[in-house]
Every structure is written in C-alpha cells, then in structure tokens.
C-alpha cells in the first residue's frame, strides 16, 4: 500500500470515528428532545414517529429549568473569576520564582485531580458544613467550585507566567513603567491565552458539576446538572433529559467558539527578535 493510500484510509477512519463520537450522540439528543408524548419512540423505529417542541415548552413552563439556568449561569462565571483570582498568586510564584522543589510543587498542585470527583465533593461539602458555611448555599457552592477547580487554573496560569519574558519586564521598568504599566505591557499579553483558557475550563467544569451542587444545594438550589439527574433519576424521562443535556451543551459550544476566536485575535505573536 502506498503512503498516500494509507493516509487516505487513516483520514477516513478518523472521520468515521469523529462522526460516531460527536455527531451521533448529538443527533440522538436532538431527536430524543423532539419526541412527542402522544407516540413513544420505540426501538423498532429509526426516527421518532411524531415530533414536536412539546418537551421543550413543557420543560420551560413546568419545571425549575428557568431558575436552574439562572443559577448555573450565575454560578459558573463567578466561580471562574474567583478561581482565577485564587490561582493567580500560586501560579505567579510557581511560574516566576526559582526555588528548590518547584517541580514537585507543580505536580502536587495537580494531585487533587486524581481523587474521584465524587469523593472530593462529599468530603469537601462536609468541611463546608463543619465550617458553618451553610447560611448562603449559593456562596458555598461558588466557593467550593472555585477551590475544587483550582488545580486546572493554577496549572494553566503557571505555564502562562513562565511564558512572560523577564527582559520585557526589565525593558518596561527601564523605560520608567509603574507596576501597573509593567503588568499591562509585559505580563498581560503573555497571560491572556492562559486567562481565557482557565476561565473557560473552570466555567465548563462548574456548569457540569453535579456532586457538590447536589449535596450542598439541594433542595433549595437547583442547577442544570441536578435538574438533569432528577429527570433521569425519578422517573427516567429520556426526552426531558435530552432537552436538558442540549441546554447544557449548546451554550458551552458557543462559548468555546467565541473564546477560540478571541484567543486568535488577541495574540498576534509573543516572540520578538531572536534569542
């Protein structure tokens, strides 16, 4: 077999796998969300026999979807920003200072990620309760999310801080720049991609997080994942779950595209000259 033929075969298999992986579940979700309750979609039919937006309208009007949406989309950006602020000092230290054991410290920062999220969540929420963090449940979830997803933000920002070039800082300083001006001209351009990436990851993680939101929030606070699990758990209404999961995924995709575009336009290049 020639090289180009092999390439073609590989390309096609890749396309097929991607289709199976991405398109099929998505299509299935769309189809399931459109199933009309008058006629159930049984396994022997390729397409639902009757389709309508009944489920969408029903979910919108008769469930806590609206408040769940509001909570989730208030929670996620706040958690992302808070997480970024909490991560910044550690990332700065890890990225800018040389000290013995730095590499070990970097690895240690990632360690919380190897514990299964549900376990972390259970113990973390018990800590929150013990600290008496129960008066303001939204705040408790917000704080928990910000802390729980710190490893991602720290790791990403550490790499960004390492990208900042000392000579740019020195050059700015030499030209009389104040701390703030130095930050803007030397740090910010190098940090921007990392800031966006960290915000995005924490945002998505927070939007999708179930365990903490459930343990700490229920019953008074409903987020999209907890709503989703109750739709699946109580009476297993698959079409309702499909509606919810689409609501969960669509804004994320849009957000990701926007950020991707932002990243590209914000960052012409970071290097100048040689050396």
């Amino acid at each position: 077999m020639t090289m180009s033929k092999l390439n073609k075969v590989l390309m096609i298999s890749l396309l097929v796998i991607c289709t199976l992986w991405l398109v099929v579940p998505f299509t299935m979700a769309v189809l399931w969300s459109l199933v009309d309750p008058s006629q159930p979609w049984t396994a022997d039919k390729l397409l639902p026999p009757a389709m309508s937006f009944y489920r969408w309208i029903d979910m919108w009007q008769n469930s806590s979807l609206k408040s769940a949406l509001f909570t989730s989309y208030a929670l996620a950006p706040s958690a992302a920003v808070l997480c970024l602020l909490l991560a910044a000092p550690t990332a700065f230290a890890l990225g800018r200072f040389k000290f013995p054991g730095r590499e070990v410290a970097k690895t240690l920062c990632l360690l919380p990620l190897v514990v299964p999220p549900f376990i972390t969540s259970i113990f973390f929420s018990s800590v929150l309760f013990q600290l008496g963090f129960t008066g303001w449940r939204f705040g408790a979830i917000l704080f928990a999310h910000a802390v729980l997803f710190l490893p991602y933000a720290i790791r990403i920002l550490t790499v960004s801080f390492e990208q900042v070039r000392q000579e740019h800082i020195d050059a700015a300083r030499d030209l009389g720049a104040s701390h703030w001006a130095r930050f803007r001209v030397a740090y910010l351009p190098a940090l921007k991609p990392g800031i966006f990436a960290a915000l995005l990851i924490v945002f998505i993680q927070s939007i999708e997080e179930f365990a903490i939101a459930f343990i700490v929030g229920s019953p008074s606070i409903v987020t999209i994942p907890t709503l989703l699990f109750s739709a699946l758990g109580q009476d297993f209404v698959r079409p309702n779950a499909a509606v919810l999961s689409l609501i969960l995924v669509v804004p994320n995709v849009i957000l990701m595209l926007v950020l991707e575009w932002l990243l590209k336009s914000a960052n012409p290049t970071l290097s100048s000259g040689k050396g």
Binding site: D170, A171, A177, P189, N267, G275
Partner: peptide
Amino acid sequence: PEARDTALCFQSYALFPHLTVRENLEF
C-alpha cells in the same frame, strides 16, 4: 531602574511584540 536616568539596549532587543514600532517608541 525606573527612576534612573539611564536607558538600556537589550541584546535580544526586548521589543514589546504586541505593540507597533510607533507604540514601542512611545512607550
């Protein structure tokens, strides 16, 4: 350094990559 009346030319130039030549000069 920010308060000293000296100006340094760096070996690697250290130009700000996201600023134009004019903005670099004006900084």
